[in-house]
Write a protein that binds this DNA or RNA. Structure first.
Lengths: 343, 343
DNA sequence: CTGAAAGCGCTAACAA
DNA sequence: TTGTTAGCGCTTTCAG
């Protein structure tokens, strides 16, 4: 049903090659013919078929992005900015959400292969080596997140958690906190390990203390944060501050603390990571370790674009900085451990 | 770089036609050859090129979705569910976010045309007639939201606000509220008009009252809700309850009310629309008019799929029901108007 | 049951 | 400066 180049050519009384040249701004066309052709294109409001272009040129001008949780505002924002970048650069976005199911990561990769995307952003941490292989083998550059390793065709972006955590913990120490808990991410993920390790290192470095029962696993979501906080608050002694692996987790913790009638930050301080917009909306507004989405998205894009020019260029390591954002969920450590109401 | 059908054919000692037949499950192939071919396909992990298929068949198996604000959790969830539906049905999603800029709606539609999508979900309300035309003219079915009109190739999904609002207002009346304010959506949008009108109708029907200064324009975002609430609270007399055109707006209103030291719901009740996950997380949890995302997404998909079978089938009208979700942001009306602290 | 061949809409080398 | 032609990877008649 849509118009083809040949029809435009016929209408303009030229060959389709000429129409192609006009569209692609070749200077081997008379201004006169060019104008005539453009007029027809306008009138018919003709748009070339990208699949044909793809087939011919071998480039789809599509990048794929595979994310674990579209509901997490951090990823949403990232996708939003990334899509903007792509549109500015005349590329398209193929979005795949896995909901943390590794089987869906598999499907998603197949979709990417099918559509012959020019690059893949892989934000799910559960990476089976075989999957990456099939992409690289097809010459499709990949950029991963917090994978802590690169390879031919595979770049990695890693969030500089260590210095950020160090800063956050130092800040807590300044407020008088000595006993700090941590709610981790989903067990088994590389990022979870990294965030936890950064926290532990910072604690040691600052000479503070934590303990087994104060370090609980979460799932990067609100519900996980709630449950984890419940566990921490059920300990015979509780910390004066709790750091969470991301903001959603921290928000869940906040919620549980409220339910237990703890005042924040008077009774206990809570901090998160990411700085999602929600962090500034919950009560009290959340102190958090901000990860710049714009820089992040930009690096993702740069990594893929560089690889397109030269496949060997993939395999770089990028760093995203973090910055401490102090809000009202953290405050001076209470003089003594508060009593916790049991729900 | 990726393998082509011809190579598979060569390796299997058959023609590419046979390979094609095997892949598409034709029964005109011996079980024997079929097995042999499938083996090679496995080994090479060959995936056919969808652009070539598209070119041949004239169907891209891509649906496009154009949304105004990817940051709004309502849309995020909708996109998420819609994407799931598409994957289940072996289709792809082309995502475009306009950030409320109508110029970007234009660009997005062009992108859809370029990729020859099989259908477009248009969730931005600022519809210029010409744009829809160009899609229909290309035989691309469209489904809009709250556009309140259908046309050849253009279906519409509308949220049944009237009964929902009626229910919500009746509920407020039961709580003793007589004076109710409203924070509308962005001026000029059809949905804003509809939501506002549903509210006004309900107010009249229930015999309650509202007034000029209590009906303020918002922008469907948190900041707009804050500003609007500020205006309402600056009136000489303030309502005992405020309904917002969506949850983000209501959350903004909540925030302003907090800042003015109003207790919710003791001093003033606040309700929203949508029932985004955040509604249950803010303090106090928000009473809201829930719109089922799953049903919504399903209708979007059905509308497009029906149109694919028969273009004339597009042009249907669908209805999404709403349901009242009562939480803690609404309560009995205060005996007298509370005093408002000026910030 | 299988293969040869044409053609989807475009681009790029080559000819004119 | 323009047109002719081949071919990107696939599907689908039509022959065999």
């Amino acid at each position: 049903m849509p118009t083809s180049m040949r029809e435009i050519a016929k209408l303009a009384g030229v060959s389709s090659a000429t129409v192609s040249r006009v569209i692609n701004g070749s200077n081997l066309v008379t201004e006169d013919t060019s104008r005539r052709v453009r007029k027809i294109i306008q009138d018919m409001n003709f748009v070339p078929n990208s699949s044909a272009i793809h087939l011919k040129k071998g480039k789809s001008r599509i990048y794929g992005i595979i994310i674990p949780d579209l509901t997490n505002p951090f990823f949403t924002e990232l996708v939003k900015i990334f899509e903007e970048l792509l549109v500015e650069n005349e590329r398209e976005l193929l979005l795949a959400n896995t909901d943390f199911h590794s089987s869906r990561t598999q499907t998603s990769l197949r979709r990417m292969l099918l559509r012959r995307v020019d690059g893949v952003v892989l934000l799910t941490s559960e990476l089976e080596t075989g999957l990456l292989q099939s992409l690289v083998q097809n010459g499709i550059p990949v950029v991963t997140a917090d994978h802590y390793r690169t390879a031919r065709g595979v770049s990695d972006i890693l969030v500089d958690f260590a210095p950020g955590m160090s800063q956050l913990v130092a800040y807590l120490k300044e407020l008088g906190h000595r006993q700090v808990g941590f709610i981790a991410g989903t067990a088994g993920l590389v990022t979870s390990r990294v965030r936890m390790q950064s926290f532990l290192d910072a604690i040691v470095k600052q000479g503070l203390s934590s303990r087994e029962g104060w370090i609980v696993e979460g799932n990067y979501r609100i519900d996980g944060g709630s449950v984890a906080m419940d566990k921490i608050l059920s300990q015979p002694e509780i910390p004066t501050a709790v750091v969470a692996a991301n903001d959603l987790t921290a928000i869940g913790a906040l919620r549980t603390a409220h339910q237990r009638n703890l005042r924040i930050p008077e009774d206990i301080s809570i901090a998160g990571c990411d700085d999602i917009p929600m962090a500034d909306i919950v009560f009290p507004p959340l102190t958090t370790l901000r990860i710049s989405r714009r820089e992040y998205a930009q690096m993702l894009f740069e990594a893929l674009r560089a690889a397109e020019e030269d496949f060997a260029k993939a395999g770089q390591l990028f760093h995203v900085p973090t910055s401490l954002v102090v809000r009202q969920s953290t405050g001076p450590a209470p003089a003594r451990a508060p009593s916790v109401a049991t729900t």
